[in-house]
C-alpha cells in the first residue's frame, strides 16, 4: 500500500501490553491510526482508557522489560516498534516532540530555562553556543513569553503554570519536529490560560505544518481544536471520525453517553446522565466481546458482534461493534 503524500505517522495493529505478575495484559489493543501533516488528531478517553499509553508507545518511553509492544508504528518507512535506543534518541525531540501534562514535573528544577531549551538543540543540531542562545530567545518569543531575555536566566519555580507550559512547548518545538504529541497539555491550567495555550498550539501548527496528537479527556477542548477525533474506551478505539461527525452525529454508545453526561446542557433541575457500572481494569479487559456491553445491559446481547471490529459508516467515520445500530438510552424508547 503506498502512503498518501502528507501522511506522517501510520500506526497499524498496535498492541501495548504491561506485565502484571507473570502475565502481560493489553492496555492498548489493536489501534490503527494515521496522522497527517497540518492536522490535529485528538484522542479522547477517560483515565485508564489507554490514551496516554498509546502516546508513550509512539515516542518510546516504555520500559521494555515490563512492556510488550507489537504492531507497527511507521514514520517515513521507519518502524518505531522495536527500534534500538540510539536511533530512537535521534528521533525523540528531533522528529517527535512531546508536551507533558504537568510542566513543573517535566522541567528540571535545577536548570535555567535557557539551558533546558538549549539542551535539545545541543543534542540534535550542530549549532554553536551563540547560535543556540539566539535560537532559544527566538523560541521563547515564539511561544509568547514576555521578556525572553529575563526568562532565559530564570528557574522553573520562578514562572507561573501557564509560562512553564509555554517553556515545555518551546522545548518540544525547538528542533521543529514534524510530529508533536501533547498529553493533556492544559489540564493543570485555568480556563483563560488554557485558551491561550490552545491558540498557541494552533499558531505553531500553522507556522510549521506539523501534525499534532492531542490527548485529552476534555470534550470541549477537542471540539474547539481538533480536526479528527479518536474515542478510546478500555484500550480500544471505539469511534473515529472528523470532529463534526463525532460531535454532531456520534454513533457509538460510549461517545453518545459521554456527551450526554456533560453538565454543559441547560437542563439544570434534571439529574445528569450516568453511565452504569465502571471502566473494567486491565486484568478484566481480556474479552473478545464488545467491551462496552456491560455498561449498557438493557441492550440485548444479539445486538453486539462476537468479535467487534471497526465499521466504516461513512467515509472516514469508523465505529466499533454493531451495537450502535440499535442503541438507545435506557430512558428512551427503542430506536
Amino acid at each position: 500500500m503506498d502512503k498518501p503524500e502528507n501522511q506522517l505517522l501510520d500506526i497499524q495493529h498496535l498492541h501495548t501490553a504491561f506485565r502484571v505478575g507473570d502475565d502481560f495484559y493489553d492496555a492498548v489493543e489493536d489501534v490503527n491510526l494515521t496522522l497527517n501533516r497540518d492536522e490535529i488528531l485528538a484522542i479522547v478517553g477517560e483515565s485508564g482508557s489507554g490514551k496516554s499509553t498509546l502516546a508513550t508507545s509512539v515516542i518510546g518511553l516504555h520500559n521494555l522489560q515490563n512492556t510488550k509492544i507489537t504492531g507497527d508504528i511507521l514514520y517515513n518507512d521507519l518502524n518505531l516498534v522495536g527500534l534500538n535506543e540510539t536511533l530512537y534518541n535521534r528521533i525523540r525531540g528531533n522528529d517527535i516532540g512531546m508536551i507533558f501534562q504537568d510542566p513543573l514535573a517535566a522541567l528540571n528544577p535545577l536548570m535555567r530555562i535557557g539551558e533546558q531549551i538549549g539542551e535539545t538543540l545541543l543534542y540534535h543540531t550542530k549549532l554553536n553556543k551563540e547560535e543556540r542562545d539566539h535560537r532559544v530567545l527566538e523560541l521563547l518569543g515564539q511561544v509568547g513569553i514576555p521578556n525572553p531575555v529575563r526568562v532565559f536566566k530564570q528557574y522553573p519555580h520562578e514562572l507561573s503554570g501557564g509560562m512553564r507550559q509555554r517553556v515545555v512547548i518551546a522545548i518540544a518545538i525547538a528542533c521543529k519536529p514534524p510530529i508533536l504529541i501533547a498529553d493533556e497539555p492544559t489540564t493543570a491550567l485555568d480556563v483563560t490560560i488554557q485558551a491561550q495555550i490552545l491558540d498557541l498550539l494552533e499558531n505553531i501548527q500553522q507556522e510549521t505544518h506539523s501534525g499534532i496528537i492531542l490527548i485529552t479527556h476534555d470534550l470541549g477542548v477537542v471540539a474547539e481544536t481538533a480536526d479528527r477525533v479518536a474515542v478510546m474506551y478500555a484500550g480500544q478505539i471505539v469511534e473515529q471520525g472528523t470532529v463534526q461527525a463525532i460531535f454532531e452525529h456520534p454513533l457509538h454508545p460510549y461517545t453518545r453517553s459521554l456527551l450526554r453526561s456533560m453538565p454543559q446542557a441547560d437542563n439544570d433541575s434534571d439529574d445528569l446522565y450516568v453511565i452504569e457500572g465502571t471502566v473494567p481494569d486491565l486484568k478484566h479487559m481480556q474479552t473478545d466481546d464488545c467491551r462496552f456491553a456491560a455498561r449498557i445491559p438493557w441492550i440485548p446481547a444479539s445486538a453486539h458482534e462476537a468479535h467487534p471490529t471497526m465499521h466504516e459508516v461513512e467515509p472516514g467515520h469508523f465505529v466499533r461493534c454493531t451495537c450502535y445500530k440499535t442503541f438507545h438510552f435506557n430512558d428512551e424508547a427503542e430506536a
Partner: peptide, 13 residues
C-alpha cells in the same frame, strides 16, 4: 472567563 470555556459545538468554533 465565560468566553474562555471551550464549547462542544465544532460548527461554531
Amino acid at each position: 472567563l465565560l468566553s474562555a470555556i471551550p464549547k462542544i459545538t465544532p460548527a461554531s468554533r
